[in-house]
Design a protein around this nucleic acid. Structure first.
Lengths: 251, 251
DNA sequence: AAGTGGTCTAGACCACTCG
DNA sequence: GAGTGGTCTAGACCACTTC
């Protein structure tokens, strides 16, 4: 049916299609290039649009494609390596770390947060976002129980970016020693999805890190990374090459 | 239409359904319990089966459900925390680490591997799998260039589990210092999928780690973890609580 | 053989972006 | 308004597991 030979093995069409498209991406397209639209592609391969979409979905989830409603499907740039769990990057507020504090509010902690911080006292909730190469790659919520930053000046704005920076500044005064994060695949919730320019349910990597100081854990963060565009690195350096390429198992 | 009130916001049906089902999972089902089949569920919620499946897919990707063809859909147990990047767990061959070497072959390296190892010489390719709580959670390929283990006895079997253990034993004799891994979301290829009891394309976390020894990098590993059942932890301890619960942003 | 989830179709309409 | 991807439907058949 498709543009290549008939299948004799019971391999799903969409999976075969994914392979064919994947090869086409390598040989016939360059980063940023726009693919034909879904209806045309489906017709060209002789499959229903839903089947084609299944293949495109795979490729998007693998970070090979980027789809945008109303615009089209483009070839995605290589994933960006993002360091997590290291001192410079896990510690909130460090200069030049690519993060930008956008908002802050003081409120009662969500149940799950109260559980890990061990207190029901109001927490400062700082929202930060991280942009790399012009693309939003992560949204973070930083929970700082009020007692952790007792010296926070009342002069600063009660909310907003200025307040967020003030909280981070206070936190920086503690001797932080960030370590031991945990990461898992998740689905982007509505608010994170919006911030990451994705649809709800988009694949994300959730990294939870307790912020440590001598004898205390003054804050907790939960960062949501775009799973399709990010490669998380943890450890001393960030330049590790990944050797799972799409077709690495050719043998 | 559904079992709850009409939607007034333009939230996709499948997303709303996901939320409804998610709440039902918490209140009305326990781990391991079997859900009604997809046709019944779809009818009950007044949606097409495809739409229901979209919701179930989300929940499965979040690790809340487990679906098995020919069997049914069950409530998944909580994700297991798996340490990566730490000494005990990243180093291959350490005793009691939950890994089991299954096979080994000596062959020319795939292109991507040759790139990171920096040699075209034949590599020992050790296949290991990791089982936790009776569930396969990871499949790993360990690439060891022949020069890294020159003393490997020719007496050992040329392939198979025995050979794999011999390679690991040799590797253990070097002073390994595992560090700096990188992880990203990927799609399971056919072979990994089979080993992990999943379908091709299933979401996985790919962790690439160079194995370090003083002055050399004698091996590279690529481990494929089931993204739906695993929570990866990296750092000193593995007991970090995640605070992104399904409904944590209730406020 | 019966029942399950997995794949696939051929349509329809909607939400969004852009000229 | 035209074109894109996103959602949704109502069916059909297939692959797998279990009895």
């Amino acid at each position: 049916m498709g543009t290549t030979q008939l299948e004799t093995v019971p391999e799903p069409k969409y999976w075969h299609l994914r392979t064919v498209l994947s090869e086409a991406l390598e040989s016939e397209f360059s980063v940023g290039e726009i693919l034909p639209n879904e209806r045309d592609l489906a017709a060209r391969f002789g499959v229903a649009r839903a089947t084609l979409r299944q293949a495109l979905e795979q490729l998007e989830l693998e970070g090979r494609l980027q789809r945008r409603r109303g615009v089209g499907t483009t070839v995605a740039p290589p994933r960006v390596g993002v360091a997590v769990g290291t001192e410079q990057h896990a510690w909130p507020g460090a200069a030049e770390d690519g993060w930008q504090a956008t908002d802050c509010a003081l409120a009662a902690p969500p149940a799950a947060v109260a559980l890990v911080t061990g207190t029901d006292e109001p927490v400062h909730t700082v929202r930060r976002s991280r942009v790399t190469h012009g693309q939003p790659v992560a949204a973070e919520l930083l929970y700082v129980p009020q007692p952790s930053v007792p010296d926070l000046s009342a002069i600063d704005a009660p909310s907003g970016a200025a307040r967020a920076r003030a909280v981070l500044r206070e936190l920086q005064r503690l001797e932080l020693e960030g370590r031991e994060s945990a990461g898992q695949r998740g689905a982007a919730r509505a608010d994170d999805a919006r911030e990451l320019d994705r649809l709800p349910g988009a694949p994300v990597l959730v990294v939870a890190t307790p912020i440590r100081a001598p004898g205390a854990t003054p804050a907790h963060t939960g960062a949501t990374y775009r799973a399709d565009t990010c490669r998380l690195t943890f450890g001393d350096t960030g330049g590790v090459e990944i050797h799972q390429d799409p077709e690495r198992r050719a043998s």
